[in-house]
């Protein structure tokens, strides 16, 4: 056995936190996969209450979907800014991403409230149960993402988010893009393919 220097070099050359995040995302795929499968299995099986056609408002949700998609663009720009050490634009784009995420959440709150008024509740039928649990879980993920982005923003204002910390933004970005992609699947499955 010969001896090498003890260094922080990793086997793959990638940072461990990045591989960890990818693994976590892989795990999350199975969670959302189970939720979406359940939605599909129960699609059209409700015996009472409002149906998808009576409830879902595609134009409205298309707007919120567009907002969430744009937030991913802002996220990319935030990472680019922090990587090149541009503090001002890091803050602008982080704040934009968080703001667009919050707008998406606002749309969801409005949507949920409106649906409940139209008679679609968690309890009324299978559509209500599967719809609210699926989109609610997604919304909770968006909310966690917004908190994460705001935390990064605070770190930036504390002067603790220089280019050497770009990975912190990248990790949040991986999560954010994942949540975004999941929404595209949900939007397609739940809203477009009725």
């Amino acid at each position: 056995m010969t001896h090498a220097e003890a260094t922080h070099r990793t086997s793959t050359g990638l940072d461990s936190r990045k591989i960890g995040m990818w693994t976590f995302i892989g795990s999350e795929c199975l969670l959302f996969g189970s939720l979406i499968s359940t939605y599909l299995v129960y699609h059209g099986k409700s015996v009472a209450g409002p149906t998808t056609r009576e409830i879902l408002n595609i134009p409205l949700t298309s707007i919120s979907t567009f907002v969430l998609l744009m937030s991913s663009l802002a996220m990319v720009l935030a990472l680019a800014a922090v990587t090149r050490g541009d503090t001002l634009w890091t803050r602008v784009w982080l704040a934009t991403t968080a703001a667009l995420g919050s707008v998406f959440l606002g749309f969801q709150v409005y949507e949920f409230t409106a649906f409940v008024h139209e008679g679609l509740t968690l309890q009324v039928n299978l559509f209500g149960s599967t719809f609210f649990v699926l989109t609610g879980t997604h919304g909770a993920h968006v909310a966690v993402g917004v908190l994460w982005l705001l935390s990064l923003l605070v770190r930036s204002f504390q002067g603790k988010l220089g280019p050497e910390k770009a990975l912190n933004v990248e990790l949040a970005g991986l999560y954010w893009h994942f949540v975004d992609v999941v929404w595209i699947v949900i939007f397609t499955v739940v809203y477009l393919l009725q």
């Binding site: 969670l31 939720l35 968690l122 209500g128």
Partner: peptide, 22 residues
Amino acid sequence: AFPVITAALVFLMFDRTFGTNF
């Protein structure tokens, strides 16, 4: 594998707590 039982248990807990229909 664990996320799958997580989802199944979420359904169960919603059924028991909030009266959903899973």
